[in-house]
């Protein structure tokens, strides 16, 4: 029975997403927006966690994948003239999100291939550059609105879509990492030579991590585009990638639950500090430093174990 438990959780959380949908009309638009942002950031951070946390390939180009997905899905739904609420909007949106994922994962494949030769800082710089390339290309494509941005996207994202996709993503990641196949990612992260010595195809794992991570980043981009209804290239700059990396690092590389919590906290934090206006980012930065100091040891250790969130890291004890 135990092996069915995750599936049961998946079903329950999907039903829960449906129920929440009934109440969403009663939530003030501001909180509604913040909650959707939290959801999108959870998807972004969890998908980056596959690349950075599990496979150990430090990527700084996640916003690029997100942009690829956002524009792909926006182009698809706009060309189909989907209006929100109509019956056709649901399959059409699903289709656009899947396409967004596929296009983003193609970009993931393109970044994944150089990653076979690069490690650590060099890989981080390459992925950073790649993310910027995607952004700059979009900025110069006139049919995508170039720097003016892409307007008139139907508002299709809602609680159900965002949290439904989170449920599926977490279900997939959880099952993947607890399978022998998925442990291969952890093995590649811990020691590439030893991993190949036990028969793991290191090359394939690295590429799969990028493709899988980019797929969900693309979907997150699609959700984002259909929530804000207006996208422009500057929304997918380096800072966005950096925010996602911070969420993963604060949550603990390879810690599924930690990353979800940190994505939520780091989305709420700047909003909660809005009342003190100009000092907002100073305090935000300060809090980040404090968080990192408090859980410094968790950098490399800790993975998908809820207890480790509160436990001291192995390095300290």
């Amino acid at each position: 029975m135990k092996c069915h438990l995750p599936k049961l959780y998946l079903l329950l959380s999907l039903i829960l997403c449906g129920i929440i949908l009934i109440f969403e009309k009663n939530i003030s638009p501001y909180y509604y927006q913040v909650i959707v942002y939290i959801g999108i950031n959870i998807i972004l951070a969890s998908s980056l966690n596959i690349i950075n946390g599990f496979a150990g390939q430090f990527s700084l180009g996640h916003a690029g994948f997100m942009a690829a997905g956002a524009y792909t899905s926006a182009v698809i739904t706009s060309s189909m003239h989907i209006s929100p609420g109509s019956l056709a909007s649901y399959p059409a949106f699903l289709f656009s999100l899947i396409c967004a994922g596929i296009i983003a994962s193609l970009f993931g494949l393109m970044v994944g291939i150089p990653s076979l030769r690069l490690k650590g800082d060099y890989l981080a710089i390459t992925t950073l550059g790649f993310g910027e390339i995607i952004r700059v290309i979009i900025q110069n494509l006139d049919f995508l609105g170039a720097a003016r941005g892409f307007t008139g996207i139907a508002k299709l994202s809602d609680f159900f879509w965002v949290f439904g996709i989170i449920s599926i993503l977490i279900f997939l990641v959880y099952n993947l990492i607890n399978s022998t196949y998925g442990k291969g990612f952890l093995a590649v992260r811990d020691d590439e030579i030893a991993a190949s010595a036990v028969g793991i195809d290191v090359t394939r794992y690295k590429v799969i991590a990028f493709v899988f991570g980019a797929f969900f980043a693309g979907i997150a981009g699609g959700l984002y585009a259909h929530f804000v209804t207006y996208i422009n290239p500057s929304q997918f700059g380096f800072l966005r990638s950096f925010e996602i990396v911070v969420m993963v690092v604060v949550g603990g590389m390879g810690n599924i639950i930690g990353v979800i919590i940190s994505a939520a906290i780091l989305t709420i934090l700047p909003e909660a500090l809005r009342s003190i206006a100009q000092y907002r980012m100073v305090i935000y930065a300060l809090l980040l430093v404090i968080i990192m100091l408090l859980r410094e040891g968790e950098f490399l250790g800790g993975r998908f174990n809820i207890k480790r969130l509160w436990k001291k890291s192995p390095a300290e004890t």
């Binding site: 022998t180 442990k183 291969g184 952890l186 093995a187 992260r189 811990d190 020691d191 030579i193 030893a194 991993a195 010595a197 036990v198 028969g199 793991i200 390879g254 490399l300 250790g301 993975r303």
Partner: peptide, 26 residues
């Protein structure tokens, strides 16, 4: 052919059991 590399190179973040299971990966 199975290789136990120099300097041991075990997977530091995997448990003993998981390390062994990785050995039987194929």
């Amino acid at each position: 052919i199975s290789h136990a590399p120099e300097g041991r190179m075990i997977f530091a973040n995997l448990t003993t059991r998981e390390n062994l299971e990785m050995g039987a990966y194929l």
